[in-house]
Amino acid sequence: MRLVHGCSLLMLSAMVMLTAGCETNKVSSPVVRFDRQTTNYGDAKAVELVTNEFGSSDLQMIAEKMTGSLLETGIFQGRPTVTISTVKNKTSEYIDTTNVMNSIQTALVKSGKVRFTRSIQEMQAGVDELTRQNQSGLYKQSSTAKVGKMTAAKFSVEGELTSIVKQSATTKDVFYKFTLKLFDVEEGTVEWQDEKEIRKTTKR
């Protein structure tokens, strides 16, 4: 009887020690936030299903599909030069299509298979820098970048995003189609083309 009582006491004290241990092991995280706030960093690569409008997952899926398709064709043999041309947004939504092209460009540059030249939108900054180096009189002649030495693009990339929206009382269906074309600048021919189709359906 005494032994049982002793064992119970021992277990109780062990549990108390364990609980105390748990409490002392509780540490704070290195964050600054209000107690009532529930903001956290999430997974940037997660499938975003908040609404059926064009979202981050659509952008990522389009960029991955187009990059993969371009890389596996082998059209970039010899690291040719490419420039980004227009990306038309023919949907009813406001979509920053430059974002899609930036993602494609980033992935292609990181692949090491291609070199990008300045696009029309990026050209003015390049011209300004050349002017500053050559006409300001601030730089040593031997170190300045010479005018007229830019490499022209062999290929030009053009894209288009369209959508078809159907809606009933309970269902909204959005069908996106992104088309990307790679033109040979000199010959004006389409050397590669691919599409990415996305269907998003929301039911109430």
């Binding site: 690569k45 997660a46 499938v47 299903l49 990522q60 990059t67 890389l71 992935a107 692949s111």
Partner: peptide
């Protein structure tokens, strides 16, 4: 290699087989 792909959602109907394809981001 790379930053990691985005997650993709794929509907696979009952008794259906679907093909998914991936291309490495570089050599």
């Amino acid at each position: 290699v790379g930053d990691g792909e985005s997650w993709k959602q794929l509907l696979v109907y009952g008794q259906q087989t679907k093909v998914v394809k991936g291309v490495a981001p570089s050599s």
